[in-house]
Design a protein around this nucleic acid. Structure first.
Length: 139
DNA sequence: ATTCTAACA
DNA sequence: TGTTAGGA
């Protein structure tokens, strides 16, 4: 079984994702409304999250904690369509090997992501990012 | 027992 | 965002 399928497979319910991400159910549902994650549904209309969903939620959480609002998060994490997670199709936002289409937007996306999600989290750089980039995310 | 949607003291 | 009512 491919890794991609594994990562997009609908597996866990709300409770599990809550513990995994330390986000409230309210927040998780809210982010879903904003198309930041797209868990599939069970017959009983219960949300079923994939590994990718959890990963994205963790990234969202990270950005929110850094002071980025929904509008900003949407620009860092490309909105995902229902079909992508419901099925086992690749998520554009989760890989680097997506160089075929819209290279310009992708590059811009990666730049913003790199600046906002600095892996080494250098202090002092945060305020600068929030200050200079904030206006692009407002509203 | 869990999760869902909608709505707001 | 928290919380809660009312269902499934």
């Amino acid at each position: 079984m491919s890794d991609l399928i594994r990562k997009n497979m609908a597996l866990f319910p709300m409770s599990i994702v809550m513990n995994l991400t330390n986000l409230t159910a309210r927040q998780i549902r809210y982010y879903e409304q904003h198309e930041l994650v797209c868990p599939s549904r069970s017959e009983g209309n219960k949300r079923l999250f994939s590994f990718n969903d959890v990963t994205r939620l963790l990234q969202i959480k990270d950005l929110i904690e850094k002071g980025v609002n929904i509008a900003g998060v949407k620009q860092v994490l490309l909105p995902v369509s229902k079909a992508q997670t419901a099925r086992n199709e690749p998520l554009l936002a989760d890989n680097d090997k997506v160089t075929a289409k819209a290279p310009t937007d992708l590059q811009i996306h990666k730049m913003l992501k790199a600046r906002l999600v600095g892996e080494t989290g250098r202090r002092g750089e945060v305020s600068l990012i929030q200050g200079d980039l904030a206006r692009f995310f407002r509203k």
